[in-house]
Design a protein around this nucleic acid. Structure first.
Lengths: 246, 246
DNA sequence: TCGTATTTGTACGTATGTATT
DNA sequence: AAATACATACGTACAAATACG
């Protein structure tokens, strides 16, 4: 039985360590935006790896938008300003990531219930499955600024060795899953007018615009591990992301 | 002098044709979600390519979310429902991509003006540069549902062999740039209450929520090519995207 | 303008490791 | 325990784009 969040066995591929080393170089400013990295043959020799292996590292750097590859020209360092910020294109918690006010407190409630038909469908569960329901309210200075409802199959929590009696333990599992899991999402964003219940929770006037993010998270694309819905008072959020072509 | 949008020369790498063939298989339903593809060695032989080349094709399929790779298990076909939709994580036009009402008409206005200080900064222009200003209103059945203001350096249009006198030509260049360019973005999303001017343009009551997307687009060289700002009546949009961890 | 050197892109082949069945 | 299948890593060769004298 394995913890979903558990770190992989310590075996790290060569090309990853090369990638991480070069990332470090860029962070340190050894090469600045616009600079050309040494040629692949040279780097390969420096790292004592084959050019193919080095190119796998280059691919990772390129996917991160850290370098651009140009045939005949070289590998050029791009903007390195984005090492800090996680955009919406990465799995994360938009309430924590994009609220203009810092979150300094959360209140969590955990319950268990039989999976509704929708849960069964979305999380691909059997009819007699149990799901954990996690409600989280996010505060800035005692002002609620966001609210989340998360649904996780009992099985996932169980495999994660979570103490189901301990609310805090469940909350930590959820946040770690969001930050360190290897997950993919299907995400939907909508803006609606707040109605009674959420207006109350978020302490805003009824009718004020509410940003809703609804998403399902999957491991390696296929197995659903989590479904959650987030509610954000629209004026308190500024969302950033990086988009790519293709 | 080259057109930025211009198609590449017809030379297509082997691994791309392999990728496209397998894509076709999936579209045709030759392999359905959940199925296992034949082993890489077998496929490599079928296609008469080396396994390395075949794996490059597999990588593309994986990046598209069409298959999942599982060591020891095989390459599994994933949901193929998403072949149509471009999520927000890809560069595109959110008004066209996410408005719940289909766009059936646009009205474009093009002008030229000296770069303001902000343009100079954002688009990295010299002091005496000229920028093209493109205003586009998007309609569904004579109802305005979105509005865009785009700024492009004169230089970019010029390199694209665009007839600056021809509004339609400029508009086409802009849309093609968004759909087929190889670009990266810095994007910001905000929700505000509409004020007089935009409420008028979009024919909505003042104070109604307005979704604003502001972004700069860069080529792989980190060269800014376009800055634009889009205004969307919030209730008419449902935004989808796929997020990834890391 | 032309040719040459440099640099990345594509393609092949082989061997071994590691996870799953 | 063995077979299967993908992951990693090495190496070679040539093609294509670019830079430079």
């Amino acid at each position: 039985m394995k913890n979903v969040v558990e770190e992989k066995n310590v075996k790290i591929p060569l090309y990853v360590t090369v990638y991480e080393t070069i990332c470090q170089w860029l962070k340190e400013g050894k090469y600045k935006p616009g600079d050309k990295l040494p040629g692949e043959n040279i780097l390969a020799e420096q790292f004592q790896v084959s050019r193919s292996t080095l190119r796998q590292a280059m691919l990772l750097l390129q996917e991160d938008g850290l370098i651009g590859n140009h045939q005949g020209k070289g590998n050029i360092v791009l903007s390195n300003q984005d090492l800090k910020s996680n955009g919406l294109e990465k799995v994360g918690n938009p309430i924590l990531d994009f609220c203009v006010q810092p979150i300094d407190r959360t209140v969590t409630a955990v319950g268990f219930q039989p999976a509704t038909r929708k849960h069964q469908e979305v999380l691909k569960l059997g009819v007699s499955s149990i799901v954990a329901v996690i409600d989280i309210t996010y505060f800035h200075q005692d002002m609620p600024v966001g609210f989340a409802m998360a649904y996780m199959p009992y099985e996932v929590l169980n495999e994660g060795n979570v103490d189901l009696e301990d609310t805090d333990s469940v909350y930590r599992f959820y946040t770690r899953l969001l930050s360190s899991g290897r997950l993919y999402s299907d995400t939907k964003l909508r803006i609606v007018h707040s109605r009674e219940r959420l207006a109350n929770i978020l302490a805003i006037p009824e009718g004020d615009p509410l940003l809703i993010m609804e998403e399902e998270l999957y491991t390696e694309y296929d197995k659903p591990v989590l479904s959650h819905k987030m509610f954000m008072g629209a004026d308190l959020y500024e969302i950033r992301l990086k988009r790519k072509s293709k």
